[in-house]
């Protein structure tokens, strides 16, 4: 499934509806649905806030066997290094905690892979996760 979403946090409701269509069609359980919703929200909001592309954001979700792939494509963006997000110290005491980078940390920990590819103005972020045997 593939759809374009306007570059706006307000587009999240449509993004969640899109995810729900996929979840229903493919019989995702509650845990898998939570992962998909969270991954889409965190990656999408990061693109809206940091990538500064000039077009709508293209979102694609695929299920090949038990491998789910989530791909967000953003065009005409400035160079973007996905590895620049700071690492989160989850053992740090409360007063040393900052919310920045938390969303990407959650996705990294829950996904099997998270990759960023930037080429000639186009940024592709791809997360994969192997689902329970269907």
């Amino acid at each position: 499934m593939r759809r374009k979403f306007r570059r706006d946090i307000g587009a999240l409701d449509g993004l969640f509806s899109f995810a729900e269509e996929f979840e229903t069609e493919n019989g995702l359980d509650d845990s898998e649905s939570y992962f998909l919703d969270l991954t889409l929200e965190e990656l999408f909001t990061n693109l809206v806030r940091h990538a500064r592309g000039s077009d709508d954001i293209d979102v694609e979700i695929e299920l090949d066997g038990d491998l789910m792939t989530i791909r967000l494509t953003d065009r005409e963006t400035k160079p973007f290094d996905g590895n620049s997000f700071r690492e989160i110290d989850t053992k740090a005491p409360l007063m040393e905690r900052e919310p920045g980078g938390l969303g990407i940390h959650l996705v990294k920990m829950m996904a099997d892979s998270l990759e960023y590819d930037y080429d000639d103005g186009t940024l592709v972020i791809m997360a994969t996760k192997r689902l329970e045997e269907r």
Binding site: E41, L94, M95, R97, P99, G103, L106
Partner: peptide
């Protein structure tokens, strides 16, 4: 039923202020 980093960040900020 669902919370993302946006809600977690808000709880974190509130906890720091209260502490």
């Amino acid at each position: 039923r669902y919370i993302s980093s946006a809600g977690l960040g808000l709880l974190l900020g509130t906890q720091k202020r209260l502490i």
